[in-house]
């Protein structure tokens, strides 16, 4: 009797696990890129981010030398590719692109904060914003400490 109960529990557990797996898979079919709202929302977010960061005195001076249109386009490509969208980022890697800079943690976080604000203004839900941030946060060692990415 007890073994049977155990078997049933195991079976139920398997069912539960399977359905959970299925649910995650179903959810995974919609890319983060799509959850953001696809190209229109992501482009609007990047435009808004640039607008915000250029008046953010913690970091704006660092873009004095930057071709803003090119920056927007590359940032869009990178975020698009990172979130599973139909793009290919062809810019330099994060160590290479920050090689000549002494980016501080404050500056790294300032841009993250500006991106949060940009997403807010464009109407990307906070939960989705955090999913994007989860992909960007691990770049901190490369951007700030110039430590190569894992793998």
């Amino acid at each position: 009797m007890k073994p049977i109960t155990l078997m049933r529990s195991l079976f139920a557990a398997c069912l539960l696990a399977a359905s959970l797996g299925w649910a995650t898979q179903a959810q995974a079919e919609e890319t983060l890129f799509a959850q953001i709202g696809g190209e229109p929302k992501l482009r609007a977010s990047v435009d808004k981010l640039v607008e915000i960061m250029l008046v953010d005195e913690r970091i704006n001076f660092t873009f004095a030398d930057t071709d803003i249109d090119k920056f927007k386009s590359l940032l869009y490509d990178q975020l698009c590719e990172l979130t599973g969208g139909p793009c290919k980022y062809l810019g330099r890697d994060m160590i290479e692109s920050h090689k000549k800079l002494n980016t501080t943690n404050e500056q790294f976080n300032a841009l993250a904060e500006d991106l949060y604000k940009a997403f807010d203004e464009v109407g990307v839900p906070y939960r989705v914003q955090n999913r994007v941030m989860a992909l960007l946060a691990p770049m901190q060692p490369q951007v700030v400490d110039k430590i190569p990415a894992k793998e």
């Binding site: 008046v55 970091i59 001076f61 920056f71 590359l74």
Partner: peptide
Amino acid sequence: AVRSTVLLSLAAAFAPLAQAQTTPSSAPV
């Protein structure tokens, strides 16, 4: 200005203080 260093990421580039300015539209190349 295509050395636009940064392509991205949080916290992009940081140029020397001497070039600090808040109106990038007039950023000299």
